[in-house]
């Protein structure tokens, strides 16, 4: 089921949070920002496929052509 995507996103968020802390402690703020960006983009890729699937489902159901 698609429910595990919720946990996946939350886990990615926590890991990026830890990475952010680790990188910030060793004085590399620019990489920390980049890591957050990469995490958001990866998760966004998964979310967008799900949303587009929902939109096609709704389109088929309500005949919105």
């Amino acid at each position: 089921m698609k429910v595990d995507l919720i946990f996946k996103i939350a886990a990615v968020g926590m890991i990026t949070a830890i990475l952010h802390i680790v990188l910030e402690k060793s004085g590399r703020e620019e990489y920390a920002y980049l890591i957050t960006l990469v995490g958001v983009i990866i998760v966004l890729g998964a979310v967008i496929t799900l949303v587009s699937q929902l939109f096609t489902d709704v389109r088929v159901l309500f005949r919105l052509y």
């Binding site: 979310v47 949303v51 929902l54």
Partner: peptide, 25 residues
């Protein structure tokens, strides 16, 4: 997630909405 990474909260809520919606379809 809200305290450390607020960027991910929107994504989690979108996925939750999509999943609930797809249950209802």
């Amino acid at each position: 997630l809200k305290q450390t990474r607020p960027e991910f909260t929107v994504l989690v809520s979108i996925v939750t909405g999509v999943i609930i919606f797809s249950y209802l379809l």
